[in-house]
């Protein structure tokens, strides 16, 4: 991979088997196998998607519901393996998808900081060094020693956001998480993300909101039914997307 490229997505296609009926027990499976009722319908969530993001670039991904945006993020995050094609990511990647997914609800906030950090592949020492910053940023105070199950959803999200952004990732995947917590925390988190931008982090941002994409990104693509239908400068692509939305409403 060339030096200045952070994310390279090449001819990525992802196929799902849409079972007509869900088969999840052995008895049903055999009955259907014998009676030849085991049918699969192929569904291509992504088809031949290619793009590259250079280091420091911020790419917005626009698209309607079901266009394949989340599938694309999952393949870039390495959670989902593409059926065809390849994804290469250079450097540390921090997925900000659904904050707090790795939390254990019986664990206290403090214990969850370490568990979550470990899930993201960091060492204990690395997390210890950042622990104070994380707690301070999440504004949890004494609640840090209370089990997570007693947290409000806002508190959970705040803690998740603080851990995910405490590290210095090279690639940041944002899935409309900028609306975390109350107005005060929202402003604070946007500021934090902005400061990461200033440090030159590479961003992959998924949204329906063209205003946000125009503000945060310098490049964008539009996904429609798993295909890239437009790509280029953020403003141009957003104009196209807005036109599409208007066209749809007609």
């Amino acid at each position: 991979m060339e030096n200045n490229i952070a994310v390279k997505v090449e001819n990525v296609s992802v196929m799902f088997n849409l079972n007509k009926e869900k088969v999840d027990n052995i008895k049903e499976y055999f009955i259907k196998l014998v009676t030849r009722k085991l049918r699969f319908t192929e569904f291509w969530a992504l088809q031949d998607v290619s793009f590259t993001i250079e280091k420091g670039e911020r790419l917005g991904v626009l698209g309607f519901n079901g266009a394949g945006k989340s599938t694309l993020l999952k393949t870039v995050a390495g959670v989902l393996k593409p059926t065809k094609g390849s994804v290469e990511v250079e450097g540390v990647i921090a997925p900000l998808l659904e904050l707090g997914a790795g939390f254990d609800s019986n664990y206290t906030g403090k214990e969850n900081v370490f568990l979550y950090g470990a899930t993201m592949g960091y060492s204990r020492k690395y997390i210890e060094e950042r622990y104070d910053d994380i707690v301070a940023f999440a504004e949890l105070g004494d609640f840090i020693d209370v089990p997570i199950k007693n947290y409000s959803s806002g508190m959970r999200a705040r803690l998740g956001f603080s851990i995910a952004t405490a590290v210095d990732p090279e690639v940041l995947i944002l899935d409309e998480v900028l609306s975390v917590g109350d107005a005060k925390f929202k402003a604070k988190s946007e500021k934090k993300v902005q400061s990461m931008f200033d440090k030159g982090v590479t961003v992959l941002f998924v949204s329906h909101n063209t205003a946000q994409v125009r503000r945060l990104c310098n490049k964008a693509i539009i996904l429609d039914h798993g295909k890239v239908v437009a790509s280029g400068e953020a403003n141009e692509v957003c104009d196209k997307y807005d036109a599409l939305v208007k066209g749809g409403k007609k």
Binding site: D104, N106, Y107, E111, F114, L115, A118, G121, R124
Partner: peptide, 20 residues
């Protein structure tokens, strides 16, 4: 090597939570 700390965290979590 990168995720060995995750392994020890899983072990610790299981033991701690079981009897919490």
């Amino acid at each position: 090597v990168k995720y060995r700390y995750l392994l020890s965290e899983i072990v610790r979590r299981n033991i701690k939570v079981q009897y919490r």
